Each structure stands twice: as structure tokens, then as C-alpha cells.
Simulated assay, not measured.
Amino acid sequence: MAQAAPTPGRLTVGDRATGTALPDVFSERTHMIVRWTLTIASGLLVGYWAAANRRSGGPITGWNLLFGFTTTIVFIVLCAAVLLVTARMRRELHALTWAVFLGGTFGFVYAQTDKTVLRSAVMAAAVGAVVFVVLFYRYYTHEDAEGHRTP
């Protein structure tokens, strides 16, 4: 039996005129809820990680809890700001902004251990460099030269 072969063009979300569109299963509201849920869950994870590193296996204290929740709130606010700002950036700045944010976050959490500031900075730079390379490649392959996203 003969099977239909895929067409040589890329399938794009929302290209209803040609009939090659992928179905949009979730609504915009669902995407927004998931985006905020992941941001808050990531903030809680980073806050817990930073508080656990700071106490170094010792007892959980009120100051440790306050530090963890403060870290969570700051991370959520900064992550929301990065999400809002990067939506309008070109691929180079988009990748660089996320690399600085995630590298800085890792450096801050790593600095809560007993390691030196220099080692924390080197680790943050390494994580940031890897994030930049991966995201730049992803954005380079999913955007045109003007910065318009293609699925």
C-alpha cells in the first residue's frame, strides 16, 4: 500500500490557508497557566536549593526559611521580567539574556556552599556559556533574520 509522503516544506502552527498547519491543542490561557506554574515551581526549587546549600546539612532555622522564601520571590520576579523582556529581543540578545540570568542564578546558589567566590564565578560563567551556546543554536534555527519566530 502506498502511504502519503510528507511534503518538503516545514509545517507551521497557524498556517491554516495551506492546510499544513499543526493543530493547536491548548488555548492561550492554558499556555499562560503552564508558564506561570513552571516559573513558580522553578522559583521554589531554586529557593529550596539555595537554603539547603546555605545550612550545609545543619538544622533548619527561621532565618534559613526566610532566606529560602526570599530567594524564591526574587527568582520569580527576575524570571518573569526576563520572560517579558526576551519576547521582543533578537536571537543574540535573547540567548545572552537567558545565559546571564541562568548563569547568575547558578552562581548565586553555588556561592551558598563553602566554595570560594572565584570558583562560584567560574562555575557561573561556564553554565552561562553552555546555556548561551544551546539557546543561540535553538533560536538561530527557529527564527528568521529579523527575529520572527518560526515553529
Rank of each mutant, 00 (worst) to 15 (best):
residue 87 A to C: 02
residue 101 F to C: 04
residue 43 G to M: 12
residue 55 R to C: 00
residue 4 A to E: 07
residue 47 G to L: 00
residue 25 V to M: 11
residue 1 M to R: 15
residue 74 V to M: 07
residue 132 F to W: 13
residue 111 A to Y: 15
residue 143 E to L: 08
residue 111 A to L: 12
residue 9 G to T: 07
residue 49 W to I: 05
residue 17 A to R: 08
residue 107 G to Y: 14
residue 77 V to R: 12
residue 92 E to S: 00
residue 18 T to N: 09
residue 15 D to F: 00
residue 24 D to A: 10
residue 123 M to A: 15
residue 48 Y to Q: 01
residue 27 S to T: 02
residue 151 P to Y: 12
residue 63 W to T: 08
residue 22 L to M: 07
residue 108 F to W: 06
residue 132 F to K: 11
residue 21 A to D: 13
residue 41 A to V: 03
residue 41 A to H: 01
residue 148 H to V: 06
residue 39 T to M: 04
residue 45 L to Y: 14
residue 27 S to I: 01
residue 72 T to Q: 02
residue 97 T to Q: 03
residue 41 A to F: 01
residue 104 G to D: 02
residue 117 V to E: 11
residue 14 G to A: 06
residue 52 A to P: 00
residue 144 D to P: 12
residue 73 I to N: 12
residue 13 V to Y: 14
residue 102 L to Y: 04
residue 76 I to T: 13
residue 94 H to M: 14
residue 23 P to D: 01
residue 142 H to W: 00
residue 4 A to Q: 05
residue 149 R to Q: 10
residue 93 L to G: 15
residue 24 D to R: 15
residue 30 T to S: 11
residue 87 A to Y: 07
residue 52 A to S: 06
residue 46 V to T: 07
residue 24 D to L: 15
residue 20 T to P: 00
residue 121 A to G: 01
residue 20 T to M: 01
residue 5 A to W: 07
residue 112 Q to E: 10
residue 53 N to A: 08
residue 93 L to A: 14
residue 52 A to C: 02
residue 38 L to W: 15
residue 98 W to A: 03
residue 45 L to D: 14
residue 102 L to I: 12
residue 20 T to H: 09
residue 48 Y to E: 09
residue 24 D to K: 13
residue 80 A to I: 05
residue 36 W to Q: 11
residue 20 T to K: 06
residue 139 Y to W: 10
residue 129 A to W: 00
residue 47 G to I: 04
residue 26 F to N: 02
residue 99 A to Q: 02
residue 88 R to S: 00
residue 131 V to D: 01
residue 58 G to W: 11
residue 123 M to Q: 04
residue 142 H to L: 08
residue 82 V to W: 01
residue 44 L to W: 08
residue 44 L to D: 05
residue 82 V to Y: 00
residue 31 H to K: 15
residue 85 V to R: 08
residue 32 M to H: 09
residue 108 F to P: 01
residue 64 N to D: 13
residue 76 I to P: 06
residue 148 H to K: 10
residue 16 R to E: 04
residue 117 V to Y: 08
residue 33 I to T: 13
residue 30 T to W: 09
residue 50 A to M: 07
residue 149 R to N: 06
residue 1 M to I: 10
residue 108 F to E: 08
residue 43 G to Y: 12
residue 74 V to L: 04
residue 11 L to D: 01
residue 138 R to K: 10
residue 66 L to P: 03
residue 80 A to Y: 10
residue 31 H to G: 13
residue 37 T to K: 06
residue 26 F to T: 02
residue 87 A to E: 10
residue 117 V to I: 15
residue 141 T to C: 05
residue 17 A to T: 01
residue 79 C to D: 08
residue 114 D to Y: 04
residue 85 V to K: 08
residue 15 D to K: 05
residue 122 V to L: 14
residue 46 V to R: 03
residue 105 T to R: 07
residue 3 Q to I: 06
residue 148 H to F: 09
residue 136 F to G: 05
residue 70 T to C: 15
residue 10 R to W: 04
residue 70 T to D: 14
residue 115 K to I: 08
residue 73 I to T: 15
